[in-house]
């Protein structure tokens, strides 16, 4: 979670420049909204509540900054991923494959599936622009690192509690796979390109 917050803070810094996909940020705001409805149904712990509120605040502030406060620096020509291509399958799958057919559970499942693909508009955008600003690459790196640590967490919990959440694990693996392509570019290209400060060239 700390890494996720770092990624969010990096993202807020990033808003002063363009290169961020507003659509991905809208999807993340939707992910946290549909997942954290249990804030109103059952209190778990102060930490749990505080972290959820931080995630919700950051994601909505981010969307506001992109589309209103810094709308001039928003590169909408390249942020053209069709969200319906993500929302329709994710909605359908959350009705088909879930743990129980109740509103809260379906919304939770929807948010888990949506989180897996929420970064795609961002990856699509940097492939269109052909390069990613250095801070964008750091943002994606921390987000990817947070995902990778979840894999380690699931392995750890499986060996200690002999439990795993199938829907969360499968969708988390899918999400991490999307980052692997980026990680490869980050490691191979990031080093040599770092000098000229123009970020990493992303082949289409």
């Amino acid at each position: 979670n700390a890494l996720h917050v770092i990624a969010l803070l990096l993202l807020l810094l990033l808003l002063l420049s363009c290169g961020i996909s507003g659509k991905s940020q809208v999807l993340f705001a939707l992910v946290f909204t549909t997942r954290y409805l249990d804030l109103f149904t059952n209190f778990i712990s102060l930490y749990n509540t505080v972290m959820k509120v931080i995630f919700l605040l950051c994601s909505y502030v981010t969307v506001y900054m992109i589309y209103w406060r810094f709308w001039k620096s928003f590169d909408s020509e390249n942020d053209t991923f069709r969200l319906e291509f993500l929302l329709v399958p994710v909605t359908g799958l959350s009705f088909l494959e879930n743990y129980s057919f109740t509103p809260l559970e379906i919304l939770w499942t929807f948010s888990i599936y949506l989180e897996s693909v929420a970064i795609l508009p961002q990856l699509f955008m940097i492939s269109r622009t052909g390069e990613a600003e250095t801070i964008t690459t750091h943002y994606l790196f921390f987000l990817g690192l947070y995902r990778a640590l979840y894999l380690a967490n699931w392995i750890w919990r499986y060996h200690t509690e002999n439990f795993y959440d199938q829907i969360a694990v499968v969708s988390g693996v899918v999400q991490t796979i999307f980052y692997c392509d980026f990680f490869y570019l980050y490691v191979t290209k990031g080093r040599c390109q770092e000098g000229d400060g123009h970020g990493i060239p992303i082949p289409a």
Binding site: I44, N48, Y99, D165
Partner: peptide, 10 residues
């Protein structure tokens, strides 16, 4: 699943 802290992703 939703609201289950022990077995849920944040």
């Amino acid at each position: 699943s939703a609201g289950d802290p022990d077995h849920d992703e944040l």
